[in-house]
Write a protein that binds this DNA or RNA. Structure first.
Ligand SMILES: [Mn+2]
Ligand SMILES: [Mn+2]
Ligand SMILES: [Zn+2]
Ligand SMILES: [Zn+2]
Lengths: 136, 136
DNA sequence: ATACAAATGCAACAATGTTGCAAAATTACG
DNA sequence: CGTAATTTTGCAACATTGTTGCATTTGTAT
């Protein structure tokens, strides 16, 4: 709870119920969550618009980052403290069993050498497979 | 034109105007194209529904594959002949200058070693940067 | 040429996300 | 603490992307 305040304060975001509860939902989730799930977890007590706007505020402050799955579905996850305000280039893993999406901080991927002429700035690596729980 | 027939025949797809013209559009594009652009290139002469259904047919036969960008926008590209019916794991490059999306067949990426418990099946690597034309 | 199967257009719908505007809540300040 | 300025919120309207059911048209095989 104290951490929630700290996060908001550190990013110059005012303390509103929606923001505080959304951060709690994101903290408690052990997977990246969709807007729809956030809304449900909050008991549908906030308007969709508000949630989208809050997600935008959080994203622009690097409090969260988003992961777009192959079908276009977007999930949101808290950005690990150490990665805020710097690059948050880490792998994402989508489990086809439980449908959860995990941030995988290690290993760090090095940018592959592209054909000449291409200048790489950034990358997204999304791996699909089975997670620890679903893999047996 | 002969190739268009060959592609359709090889995948048991009947020769319809929409299919033939869509393959031509995909061949002529030097970038992955969106449904919207396909529709425009065809002079808006086909219904959106038909285009989506054709994209589905093509995808399920590996004639094309789709690339989902970070914002959720989906682009479609012909699958290189050699990769049809096998894995088509290659890199995609999104140029932030011209907004084009390119299939980059080389280098082949090897799957990174994940934390124990994760079983990787498949991956998507999307690199963002500047292409040959936009880079200078 | 006919007959059957498949593709198409249209209308309706769902999901996701955005915008304008008025009301409500936060924050800043005296 | 009380008030004013600033933000955030809810609501309605809208845009875009994609899907489905159904009747009609087209393609293919005989
Ligand atoms: Mn992540
Ligand atoms: Mn490709
Ligand atoms: Zn799982
Ligand atoms: Zn470019």
């Amino acid at each position: 709870m104290k951490e929630v305040f700290a996060i908001l304060e550190a990013h110059n975001l005012s303390r509103t119920p929606c923001r505080m509860e959304m951060i709690k939902v994101l903290q408690e989730a052990n997977s990246a969550v969709s807007e729809q799930l956030i809304k449900e977890k909050l008991g549908n007590s906030f308007d969709r618009t508000t949630i989208y706007r809050t997600l935008k505020s959080f994203s622009s402050q690097d409090v969260i980052h988003s992961i777009t799955l192959e079908g276009g579905e977007v999930r949101y996850a808290l950005t690990p403290l150490k990665q805020r305000r710097i690059n948050h280039d880490h792998i994402h893993f989508h489990c086809s069993g439980c449908n959860n999406v995990f941030c995988i901080p290690e290993p760090k991927i090095q940018m592959p050498e592209l054909p000449s002429g291409f200048l790489a700035k950034n990358f997204d690596l999304l791996i699909e497979g089975l997670c620890k729980t679903c893999n047996t």
